[in-house]
Design a protein around this nucleic acid. Structure first.
Lengths: 336, 336
DNA sequence: CTTGGCACTCGGGAACACTGAGTGCCAGAC
DNA sequence: GTCTGGCACTCAGTGTTCCCGAGTGCCAAG
């Protein structure tokens, strides 16, 4: 259908348009990329490409601009992910290595990614779902009040204040703590509910009321945080670009739910996900593209991160940056 | 200098300009606000106000627009903070009451404030400085590795992984934990360094190496988080307004340091701080105003929150919202 | 299939005039 | 002395027209 040269023309159109942000004409194309043919020939090819829906002209007598379909073809078949330079690699590494806790890792990551790509970066906190319990702590606050702290293997900490039905001795709490940790340590969060139910039956009668209060709060914690936290950075990078509906995009960015869907929709594949313009689930974000990847330690994906920018973005470079950052974050989290 | 009527004219100019976003002329003024004088008289007054620098005209043959100085006078002497409606009050209360932990309180607050004022809201996390230690927890992770968790009376939780120089028994850790809590419980964070130094000398010889490792991490934690965390929301509300340099403002919002100065500069007064246009420390934010207030439980200010919007904002309403939200957040934090 | 030539299209910028809101000033009224 | 109506003046914004040139589509020849 599309011979070699037509593909080359499409690639050239995309590259030129991305770098100049202006519709590209046949003449300029034939000159800048040495295609070895005349402008007239290029015109014919462009006519075909337009007919097939890969490019379009904003108005008669203007150059051509890639369509979403054109970008799609470009990403899938005409381009290669561009690896980062050594310097960039080292910069990432040292920047991320300085993080002190999970919060810090995420914050640094999102800024790094925004700066690297000059676009809006989005990072999801490591999911509770896939992680395991590292420790459960019960801290007495008052006679009938304790604080429940749940620490996961990804360094995430959840805490809740629990009001108890009875006055409880310190050593009873210590005992409960020991039991809880014995049962739950290393347990996948998804399996906690089962384990807890099981545990509750095996407890001695006198511990039941207190334990069940605590355990129900523990379960609440898991459920409530089911919807994950997402942060973004680099909104300023949108400001220069008139082609995107700034207001809509900013609104979308502040809607956790929308962001979640953007990143998560295709979480089955560990590879890079690219969603271009109208492929996007949220109508306010047509005109923008998302490049996302999962990250995690080893083979289990903890969460996702990505970049959002105008459809007219440099895909090879962006994809390279996203992939690299995802890998490094995975390493960092695995190591801590 | 300025008689009663001239002040009324200034007030009218500010109010009209704020609501219409267009330079306001003498005729419209004389009509809409029943000043009881003719447009010509108003013109004379306006000429005086302009001469004194309270208002200005964008170009000859256009209406007048308040200057920063004009807004300042308006805020200081011509307007009253507008209290929220009962419905708004209740909405705030129920919305904030649903928060489950500190993170949630802050997130909800910032969104609430953004929505209420239709501007950009900024909230600082409760400062470590003024809060006290509620509990210190040591969690064994591996033979020579523990996690240090610090819980403050504002519900804030800081955690660090500590690599120990020696293998340590569980009961030694339990002992250390008990000692630490005995010393530090209720201690103001500002006084922790002293207390720790004191403690270190009183420890038995064999505990010294382990303890000093842990304590130095504890001190690090306090120092590192000295620069506080700040979040914002409602950036989308900026998008409609052309009068502000969108890019600059977004950049400023992502600079923690700048935000900190905006909110914090005048933290000595517990009352509302209003900073108008060029009064602003950061040049990218001329053209915007900040309304900020401290919040906290009772008399000690924990941190600050505020709103950032175009200089041309509705000050009475904004100030009312900021004050109300600050109060409610204080209550919530005190109660949990 | 490719190429050069040619007529055609149309967005965008420059030049221009027009309109109307708003001003400043002045002479007269209260 | 202060206010008011009248009047000439200014100028941003808008609409109109015109022109230029980049870029196209088509055709006939190589």
């Amino acid at each position: 259908m599309l011979d070699e040269r037509k593909l080359a023309v499409l690639r050239a159109v995309v590259e030129d348009y991305v770098s100049t942000n202006e519709p590209v004409g046949s003449k300029a194309l034939a000159e800048r990329h040495n295609l070895g043919v005349s402008p007239a020939t290029v015109r014919n090819d462009m006519a075909v490409l337009e007919e097939q829906g890969y490019i379009t002209q904003p108005h008669t007598s203007a150059g051509r601009v890639p369509t979403d379909k054109g970008y799609r073809l470009f990403v899938d078949r005409l381009s290669q992910i561009k690896p980062l330079s050594g310097a960039e690699r080292r910069a990432i590494e040292t920047f991320l290595a300085g993080a002190v806790d999970l919060d810090d890792v995420v914050t640094r990551t999102v800024r790094l990614l925004a700066q690297l790509t000059r676009q809006v970066a989005v990072v999801q906190y490591p999911s509770l779902i896939r992680s395991t319990v590292r420790h459960v702590e019960l801290v007495p606050l008052a006679e009938r009040r304790i604080m429940l702290v749940l620490i996961t293997n990804t360094g995430r900490v959840e805490q809740r204040v629990v009001d108890l039905p009875d006055v409880v001795e310190d050593d009873q709490i210590a005992h409960l703590r020991a039991v809880l940790n014995a049962c739950l340590d290393g347990c996948r969060l998804t399996r906690v509910p089962d384990t807890v139910a099981d545990l509750q039956e095996r407890l001695p009668e006198e511990d039941r009321p207190v334990a069940s209060t605590i355990l129900s709060v523990l379960l609440d914690t898991l459920v409530e945080r089911h919807d994950e936290k997402i942060v973004f950075a680099g909104a300023a990078n949108l400001a220069g670009d008139f082609s995107v509906g700034l207001r809509e995009v900013l609104e979308a960015l502040e809607e956790q739910v929308v962001l979640m869907r953007l990143l998560g929709e295709a979480s089955d594949s560990a590879a890079l996900t690219v969603r271009i313009g109208s492929e996007n689930p949220y109508s306010g974000l047509h005109g923008t593209s998302i490049v996302a990847a999962g990250y995690g330690s080893g083979d289990n994906e903890l969460a996702r991160l990505g970049v959002l920018g105008p459809t007219r973005m440099d895909y090879p470079v962006t994809m390279g940056a996203v992939r690299a950052v995802a890998r490094y974050v995975g390493q960092i989290l695995a190591g801590s």
